[in-house]
Each structure stands twice: as structure tokens, then as C-alpha cells.
């Protein structure tokens, strides 16, 4: 049996403490026991181990994503209220070639793309090389490719690969 990484147990313990919203010793002990039991029970279901390095890059990425979410919220609100200069919006599918192969990195990328209004993750080709997304305000395809590859994918490759 491989070594069980302690971070899962720590995350589950943190969630237990948050749900009870207390940090008394009794809750810490109970949470630790429950989370280690759950971890032992659920571990055979999860054979893949994430390899994460460079936490600061991830923090900077989170900050960048927050800024982007606010900006694109304003953009989508303008489109919905009809405040754009062009009367008609032009939405459509587009394809982006990806270099990221790690499944954990890809799932983080899916969260980023879906949580940013204006873009929705549609599907990934079976060999994980081509991503299809749907964009609400598709003016310039190369700009979107540039943005996703430079702003998000590079940081994720740095962290997960």
C-alpha cells in the first residue's frame, strides 16, 4: 500500500471544524479520527496522487482569477443589459490546443473557465490535447487563446507538472 498523503486528512479535518465552527480539543480529536477513518475507507477509490509545487504561484493565480472574474462579470452584465456598442452579440464555440496533461491541473482549469462568466468549458478531446469552450462575446479568437494559455495554463503547468 502506498503512503497516504496527510493533506487529505488535514483538509477533511478543516472542513469538520468549519462545519462545527469550533476549534475545541474534543472537536479536533473527533474530526481527526473521523477523517482518518474516511481516508482509509476512500483511499482505494483514488489512485492518482496530485503533485503540487510552488504554492505562491497558485496564490498569484487565484488573485488573477479573482480580478478576471470581476472584469468579466462587468462585461457579461453589459452584454445582457444591451450596453455594448455593437447591437448584436456574436457567441460561438472555439477550440484551444492545450499543453497541460495533468488531470488535477485540468480540473483546476475547468473550474477557472467555468467560474469566469462569458466562457464555459464544453469538452476535452480524449487525448487531452484539444479543448472546446463556448464564448459569449467572441470578437477575436486569438485573444482568448492568448489569455487562457498565458494567464492560466502556464501557471498551472508550473504548479502541477
Amino acid at each position: 500500500m502506498r503512503r497516504v498523503p496527510p493533506i487529505f486528512a488535514l483538509v477533511m479535518l478543516a472542513m469538520w471544524l468549519l462545519l462545527n465552527s469550533s476549534i475545541s480539543l474534543a472537536h479536533i480529536i473527533l474530526g481527526a479520527v473521523i477523517s482518518s477513518l474516511l481516508l482509509l475507507a476512500a483511499y482505494p477509490l483514488r489512485p492518482l496522487q496530485p503533485r503540487m509545487r510552488r504554492g505562491p504561484v497558485l496564490l498569484r493565480l487565484a488573485f488573477k482569477v479573482l480580478i478576471d472574474v470581476i472584469r468579466s462579470n462587468i462585461g457579461v452584465a453589459r452584454v445582457i443589459l444591451g450596453l455594448t456598442e455593437r447591437g448584436k452579440i456574436h457567441s460561438g464555440f472555439m477550440q484551444i490546443p492545450l499543453d497541460l496533461r495533468d488531470p488535477h491541473g485540468l480540473s483546476v482549469l475547468a473550474m477557472i473557465i467555468t467560474c469566469t462568466p462569458g466562457t464555459v468549458w464544453v469538452e476535452l478531446s480524449p487525448d487531452r490535447s484539444m479543448l472546446t469552450i463556448h464564448v459569449l462575446d467572441l470578437v477575436d479568437e486569438s485573444e482568448w487563446i492568448e489569455r487562457i494559455k498565458n494567464r492560466y495554463e502556464r501557471a498551472l503547468i508550473e504548479v502541477f507538472q
Binding site: V69, N73, V76, S91, T114, C115, P117, L136
Partner: peptide
């Protein structure tokens, strides 16, 4: 894309 605004921010 509309509801994803309300969902996130």
C-alpha cells in the same frame, strides 16, 4: 453564461 454570473460572484 447568464446564471454563471449569479453563481460565482
Amino acid at each position: 453564461h447568464g446564471p454563471s454570473m449569479g453563481n460565482t460572484l
